[in-house]
């Protein structure tokens, strides 16, 4: 969803960092995207290329680090892996799950020159 806005956010972070840390070119971006964050990595990569044209991050390599989805099953009282936000508990099959991990949307690191 809204990958274009998010790609603009990544660019903004890169531009702010460029000003702060005095570099003129971003050559790679490490992006942490949770499996349950609702972000399509391919769409993200496409939008990233589009919004970075003519910027400090033009041509930068986008490295997407996927973090797994985790939920707390109320019935089992334990953390279980989740593949979708509407997923069921792999143990009891119930839907009383609260997402506890895998919604990250973070710029982790930049490689700059």
């Amino acid at each position: 969803m809204h990958e274009m806005s998010l790609a603009e956010g990544v660019l903004q972070v890169s531009e702010d960092a460029a000003q702060r840390d005095r570099f003129s070119k971003v050559t790679a971006v490490w992006l942490e995207i949770g499996q349950l964050a609702g972000v399509e990595p391919q769409a993200m990569a496409f939008c990233f290329d589009a919004v970075t044209r003519g910027s400090v991050a033009e041509g930068a390599r986008l490295e997407i680090v996927a973090t797994p989805g985790v939920g707390w099953c109320m019935a089992c009282a334990k953390s279980v892996p989740m593949n979708e936000v509407f997923g069921e508990c792999p143990d009891c099959g119930g839907y009383q799950l609260q997402v506890t991990g895998g919604t990250e949307l973070r710029v982790k690191e930049l490689e700059v020159a």
Partner: peptide, 10 residues
């Protein structure tokens, strides 16, 4: 090139 730690939510 060098690496810059960002750790910032988009």
């Amino acid at each position: 090139t060098r690496r810059v730690q960002i750790e910032q939510d988009i």
